[in-house]
Each structure stands twice: as C-alpha cells, then as structure tokens.
C-alpha cells in the first residue's frame, strides 16, 4: 500500500505541475489508465487517492474524484509475431508455444487526463 501512496503522490505532483502552468488550482476529476500487469490494482490506487485527500493534498478537495480505466495486458510473440492476451507475466505464445512474449500493453500506469478549476 505504501507503494500506491508514493505513486499517487508522484502523479499528483505531475498534475500539479501542469495545473500551475495553466493557472488552475484544484482537480475535479483525475483519469488514469492502469494495466493489468502494472504493479498496481485500481482498489489500492483508489485508497491511495483517498489517503492523499485526507492528508490535504493541495490540489485535491473533498469533491475530487478518481476514474480508472483498466487496460488489459497484451503480448507479442518474439518468434511468430502473434499478438495475444497473456495469462501471466511470463507470456507463452498460444500459437507457437514459445515463452518470452514481449508485453506491448498493460504494464504501465498512465495519467490520461484531468479536469481542473
């Protein structure tokens, strides 16, 4: 959990930087995209968001909301180029059975957008 709190703190700093440039001060809604193979899950990030609210993060208010879009992991086989949804981080190509598929989606957390005032 400390991991998500730190990560959320980093993301709020990135948003705060952008808001400052635009003369905005409070976030109304923050949108993230969380990969199923990222280090995190939506529940933990939502809790971290609430913790930052409770800790009075300068850009958050009681009304600030978090919206999370889940991105399914996708892998590409290094041999046959087949793209598939891997069951595990160690991706086995269902087409040719070769392990070591390269993850092409779902291993990151991105800040997509925000609405600010």
């Amino acid at each position: 959990m400390s991991h998500e709190v730190a990560l959320m703190g980093d993301m709020l700093n990135l948003v705060a930087e952008d808001m400052q440039k635009r003369g905005l001060s409070k976030v109304k809604k923050l949108k993230l995209r969380v990969g199923t193979f990222s280090h995190s899950v939506p529940d933990a990030l939502e809790m971290a968001f609430e913790i930052h609210k409770a800790m009075k993060a300068p850009i958050l208010t009681e009304e600030s909301t978090l919206e999370i879009e889940v991105e399914e992991a996708r892998a590409r086989c290094v041999i046959c180029g087949h793209e598939y949804v891997p069951d595990h981080r160690v991706a086995l190509c269902p087409n040719c059975g070769v392990p070591g598929g390269k993850l092409i989606a779902g291993d990151a957390i991105r800040i997509l957008s925000y609405e600010g005032v």
């Binding site: 990560l7 980093d10 990135l14 109304k28 993230l32 957390i109 991105r110 800040i111 957008s113």
Partner: peptide, 15 residues
C-alpha cells in the same frame, strides 16, 4: 469544464 489531456506515465517524474 474542459478535460485536459496529460497522457503521462505515472513514473514520469521519477524517470
């Protein structure tokens, strides 16, 4: 209210 597209990796400041 306009939605502002940021599209940044969560680890951007660490990177």
């Amino acid at each position: 209210m306009a939605e502002i597209i940021l599209s940044q990796d969560a680890l951007a400041s660490n990177n």
